[in-house]
């Protein structure tokens, strides 16, 4: 019976997803030769990856951005959701404003931030300059590239916030009423009711953030360049796959990179699952 319900997805998987996935897997063991010939090269593409300095650089950059960016963005969007869940005037307006940045087309966002973070003309450094502080070089300084990218990503917390908001609606108000009768304060309510009840949503948000963060790259092309800027400080894994596929025409190699990414993401997601389940058990016991 359950299978009947998930049948649409299974059909879609078989018709639309299976072939591209299998094809990219096979491609990862090949190299394009002259004409339209495809040469089987075995594990060559995978071995090459582990010899490339850029491969490790891309992994490191992606990890740094994700490990700092994801937790902070999650906390910020959760706090925003909690605040905007409080009954107040203009609630809808505030929520909309927080969500606004997420609806700006990516091209516009990129160009906008390029201007905001401009070390000479941008509003941030102009402001810092006016109060006698020397602003950083932002995207022009390799040491500041990652902080800049992380700051930018905070502007887009509206999306995650919305999902947390939706999650908060599923917590029955009776729980809070009962807790208040027992004399629990707001902090206790947050810790013992809201957080545990939000766990499935938090898990969802975290996993999606990992998956997207590991693959994202388009904002970097707009903000920096195809190489990830000076010293390749912004060379993330998604960008490395992209340039190999569409600039250097190495489909086989980039497919291998993608499958390495898949393995890596899968492990990270499973670890996240484990972490969430364990921390859940502890709170229950």
């Amino acid at each position: 019976m359950g299978l009947l319900f998930i049948l649409p997805w299974i059909l879609g998987l078989l018709i639309f997803t299976l072939y591209p996935v299998v094809a990219s897997f096979i491609l990862s063991f090949t190299r394009t030769g002259e004409g339209s010939a495809i040469k089987w090269v075995g594990l060559d593409n995978y071995i090459t990856a582990f010899r490339e300095p850029d491969f490790f650089r891309a992994i490191l950059n992606t990890l740094i951005l994700s490990l700092i960016g994801i937790p902070v963005a999650q906390i910020m969007s959760l706090v925003a959701a909690l605040l905007l869940n409080v009954k107040m005037k203009f609630q809808g307006v505030f929520r909309t404003i927080f969500f606004l940045p997420s609806v700006v087309p990516a091209v516009a966002t990129g160009l906008l931030w390029k201007w905001i973070l401009n070390p000479r003309l941008g509003p941030i450094n102009t402001f810092l300059d006016s109060i006698g502080l020397a602003g950083p070089g932002w995207l022009a300084d390799p040491a500041w590239v990652k902080p800049s990218l992380i700051i930018m990503s905070f502007w887009g917390i509206g999306g995650t916030m919305v999902i947390y908001l939706a999650g908060l609606q599923n917590i029955p108000t009776e729980y809070y009423e009962a807790a208040k009768l027992d004399g629990a304060g707001s902090w206790a309510c947050l810790k013992y009711i809201t957080m545990p009840m939000l766990r499935p949503v938090t898990l969802f948000n975290t996993i999606m953030a990992i998956i997207t963060s590991f693959q994202s790259f388009s904002n970097i092309i707009i903000m920096l360049d195809m190489d990830g800027g000076m010293k390749k400080a912004g060379l993330v894994y998604g960008l490395y796959i992209y340039t190999n596929a569409f600039r250097d025409f190495k489909m086989g190699y980039s497919s291998a990179l993608a499958w390495i990414l898949l393995a890596f993401t899968f492990v990270s997601v499973m670890l996240t699952y484990k972490f969430f389940n364990r921390s859940g058990d502890q709170e229950v016991s």
Binding site: N118, P119, R120, G137, A140, D141
Partner: peptide, 10 residues
Amino acid sequence: LQKKRIFQAG
């Protein structure tokens, strides 16, 4: 190089 990058960004 660093000075140049900042100048260039403007």
